[in-house]
Design a protein around this nucleic acid. Sequence first.
DNA 1: ACCTGAACACCGTTCAAGT
DNA 2: ACCTGAACACCGTTCAAGT
Lengths: 211, 211
Amino acid sequence: MTGNESGRRHTRDDVAETALRILDDYGLPDLTMRRLAAALDVQPSALYWHFPNKQTLLAELADRIVARGAGAPTDTTAWPDRLRAESVALRDALLAYRDGAEVVASTYALGLGDSAAQRRLAAAAASGGFDAETSDRAATALLHFVLGHVSHEQQRMQFDSIGVLATGEAADPLDASDSAAAFAFGVDLLVGGLERLGDESRSGPLSRSRT
Amino acid sequence: MTGNESGRRHTRDDVAETALRILDDYGLPDLTMRRLAAALDVQPSALYWHFPNKQTLLAELADRIVARGAGAPTDTTAWPDRLRAESVALRDALLAYRDGAEVVASTYALGLGDSAAQRRLAAAAASGGFDAETSDRAATALLHFVLGHVSHEQQRMQFDSIGVLATGEAADPLDASDSAAAFAFGVDLLVGGLERLGDESRSGPLSRSRT
DNA sequence: ACCTGAACACCGTTCAAGT
DNA sequence: ACCTGAACACCGTTCAAGT
């Protein structure tokens, strides 16, 4: 596609896309600058013309992974459903690349990359009528949960595929539907908590439920 | 304390405690096997008599960090308060060591270490009368949030201390009370979601509409 | 039981220089 | 504009051998 397999010179986009292919095929630990350079038929030092360092390259990959999970804003549905949909879309985007969650999580932790995922979640929350700070905090909580959950999920997928199970540890073989259910449960907890908060503020700070 | 500064031979405990000191003083990136060996006045290869590899050593550190945050079971308080208290205790334990959250998160992601944190949270949830699967999933969701939040928090602390702020980016200087409030908000969302779930199942599956 | 010495097979990054 | 060549300063891990 953007490979530029033999045409000597490369663009920043070439480098990023080749890196994404290595990431997806061999995983994050095997995505080294030297391996990437070799895949591009170039010396390792050549990469530093396109990116100042490896972290910046990884941030670019994180942005691309997240951006590929972006659908239409879906302004029609109720806000809790929209928030759930954004969470699922983010999970799908992360699952689309091997170690996708870890790449995005580490980039996010370092404060690099556009924070597109965070902004999408915050916008969905804000559509529920919450103020900016509440929306941001809810988005952050959701984002942390999603990144943590999918990181864990992808780690388990690798272990299972290599078959690195300790003797005696039968170890649940990671049912995909179980994983999705556990994910949905976590999202429901957070969205439910936000709904509850909305109910409370709507019914006033002093009036408990009508009993 | 356990330093064994000059007495030639070391125990597994020495190695772990020295590693914790390096972690706390210089951070995770500087905790290398070679640096640890130097601190113990020993060749790097000597470490491999005590631990089979670096990941196993890090798992040991993670277990110690989490264990140090363990207080009394507090069976007196209501379960939502107990769950909140466990979450805060876990955060405090992680904050007690530099990069503590990242060490625990990566160990947890790899499925290494005793999962003491997860078990404590699950026990607190179960004390609310939820079944084992629900308690586990709630604990996992909480754990992911806590690890993600504190990782982020600690990353920012380092950035701020080194003063690596991009020009023009005034960047909020990370108010500690803000951080604590954002943390409490996320915990409240999850605990609140769980309370809501309890209310629903108590009032029957059909009584409440979910629009 | 605990460690040394020496090696293996790697890393990310810099920088002068080339075209 | 984009890359080479060569180096710097590191990594984790293995393994025979020592005491």
